[in-house]
Amino acid sequence: MTSASSASSTIAASALGRLSLNQKTTNAWTLPEAVEGCVRAGIPAIGVWREPLHEFGLAKARALLDDAGLRVSSLCRGGFLTATDAAARRAALDDNRAAIDEAAALGTDTLVMVVGGLPEGSRDLIGARARVAEAIAELAPFAGDRGVRLALEPMHPIFAADRGVLSTLGQALDLAEQFPSDQVAVVIDTFHVWWDPEVEAQIARAAGRIAAFQVCDWITPLPADTLLSRGMMGDGHIDFARLRRVVQDAGYVGDVEVEIFNADVWAADPDQVLRQMKHRYLECVWDGEMQVSP
């Protein structure tokens, strides 16, 4: 083996050691099936979703993950904090406290927060953002006491009405910086931030507060259901290697989650999806660091 190929292999092994499967990428699999799939594929970490977690059971899930030797890169999701009704607000806070406890029980310090869109019939975007801030202020100390960070996920503006009223990384940091970094942090999801002309400066600003780095591509034309418009890396328009380098320069050395919502990906054989995911992760996210063979 030449010195160049040896160095490339070392980089690939190191990169794959940071790869995480977000459960949504293999949406047809149960939690046990996803865990088994990761083990078969040699993927060392998994991002868990609460719904399949509840179906399987929290204690059983922790034992399953421990037996498989998998890290839990994140728990998804908390949030949805924009309700105006007092009872709905209390219910949302209670659900988020439960999610924080679940994250701690799974051994992850990252609870991904999709903060919520406008309440039905509302056009008060400023008020919705203010209610998110109030709720985070109430939840942050509770999370910190349990060793969990509330990881605010800014979402592309097309989702501001129904999913996330924090639309840029800068907005998410404006809120996160009001709290200790061990309580409130941010998620950098390439799908949501790639378009932002300020993204590199904001990633640098986020140093010490990056709780998760998620990757998937922006594909066009957008499908009718824009929620399912995430593509496999390399199928769209995002310069992953550039963003990965900026995130790395900001000091982030944690897992890199592949999170894809896409009807065609979900319909494919999940084991084949994982094989393609590993190859594209090396080829696209780590492009320029190594030569990747198909």
Results as ranks from 00 to 15, higher is better:
Ala4His: 05
Ser6Ala: 15
Ser8Lys: 08
Ile11Asp: 01
Ala12Val: 04
Arg18Phe: 00
Thr26Gln: 06
Ala28Lys: 15
Leu31Lys: 02
Arg40Ser: 11
Ala45Gly: 15
Ile46Glu: 02
Trp49Met: 08
Pro52Arg: 13
Pro52Met: 13
Glu55Phe: 11
Asp67Pro: 08
Asp67Phe: 10
Ala68Glu: 09
Ala68Arg: 04
Leu70Asp: 08
Arg71Asp: 15
Asp85Ala: 13
Asp85Thr: 08
Ala92Gln: 03
Ala99Ile: 04
Ala99Gln: 05
Ile100Ala: 03
Ala104Asn: 08
Ala104Thr: 10
Thr110Ala: 15
Glu120Asp: 09
Arg131Ser: 05
Phe142His: 14
Ala143Thr: 11
Arg146Lys: 13
Leu150Met: 05
Leu150Tyr: 03
Pro154Cys: 07
His156Phe: 09
Leu169Ala: 08
Gly170Thr: 10
Glu177Trp: 05
Val186Pro: 05
Val187Lys: 01
Thr190Gly: 08
Glu200Cys: 08
Gln202Ile: 00
Phe213Asp: 00
Thr220Ile: 08
Leu222Val: 15
Leu227Met: 15
Gly231Asn: 02
Gln248Trp: 04
Gln248Leu: 03
Val258Arg: 00
Ile260Phe: 03
Leu274His: 08
Leu282Gly: 05
Trp286Arg: 00
Trp286Glu: 01
Gly288Arg: 06
Glu289Tyr: 12
Pro294Gly: 10
